[in-house]
Structures are given as C-alpha cells and as structure tokens.
Write a protein that binds this DNA or RNA. Structure first.
Length: 139
DNA sequence: ATTCTAACA
DNA sequence: TGTTAGTA
C-alpha cells in the first residue's frame, strides 16, 4: 500500500510516517515511481511505534527494539538480550511515571471534590452537559 | 488525484 | 509536526 492508505489506516499523518522512516522506524520499499510501498505488517508496526512513543521512549530506542521483537501466537517476544538493559530501564522509568500520574490524579480529584460548583443561568435552551468528575474508579 | 522533497508567516 | 510549494 502507499502512504495515503497507511495514513488512513493508522490515523497518522503522512508527514509523520515519512519522519518515522527518517528515524529508521519504518523501512518501506520504493516503487519505480518513487512512491513508498508499505506492507500490511506496517499498520501494526505504526501502532507499536505510537504506543512506545507515547510511553516516552525516544525514536532511537524504538528503532533498536522493534527489529528485535518476534510476533508469537499470543503476543510479542524479545530476541535481543543485548537490549535487556535498555528495556528494563524504560520499564522502570514508565513505572515511576505512572506513580507520578497516580499522585497527580489523586491531587486533582481532591481539589475537584473540594471545589464549589458554579450555578449559571442556563437559558440557552440546550441541555446542560456538566462534565462528570472522576469518581475514583481505576485501581 | 497522489506522492515526493524541501523548507518555514 | 503542520503546512505548503512545485514536480513527476
């Protein structure tokens, strides 16, 4: 498939897909026309890239990790013991990050619950859609 | 109509 | 990362 379809399938801008290639995250073949030619597996690959990027990993690390993963029946499997150090380091960093997020969420929830609700005159006719505040759901 | 490269009011 | 210009 060409870049347009991959962009549509993944929701990632073509500009970004080209950037990922520049960062060695994707290696599409080139057609005689010069157009990039992606394979079906690239759809999943882009999703993984997005996930790792969102988790805070830099492109160089992702570029090292992706080629060292093997798709198994259920999920993924590692294949490069040399990367174990980096992997554990990232895993620890993310864990620390999650802990910070938890405290931040708890803090905001406390502030929200202690905040008096405003009572504006809703004469616009439209139904009032006051957003619900987090009610301490997860974990 | 699509994609490509390069560049930035 | 977005957007755009000028091509192929």
């Amino acid at each position: 498939m060409r870049i347009g379809e991959l962009a549509r399938l993944t929701g990632v801008n073509q500009r970004l897909l080209r950037y990922y290639e520049e960062q060695d995250l994707l290696h599409p073949l080139r057609r005689a026309s010069g157009y990039r030619d992606y394979d079906d597996a690239d759809v999943e690959r882009v999703r993984r890239i997005r996930t790792l990027l969102a988790a805070g990993l830099n492109t160089t690390t992702i570029a090292d990790v992706l080629p060292c993963t093997i798709d198994t029946d259920d999920g993924l499997a590692g294949a490069c013991p040399a990367l174990l150090g980096d992997l554990r380091r990232e895993h620890a960093r993310i864990s620390a990050s999650i802990t910070e997020l938890h405290t931040a969420r708890t803090m905001l929830a406390a502030i929200i619950d202690a905040t008096p609700h405003e009572a504006p005159e809703n004469d616009s006719g439209r139904p009032s859609d006051e957003g619900e505040r987090p009610s301490e759901s997860n974990r």
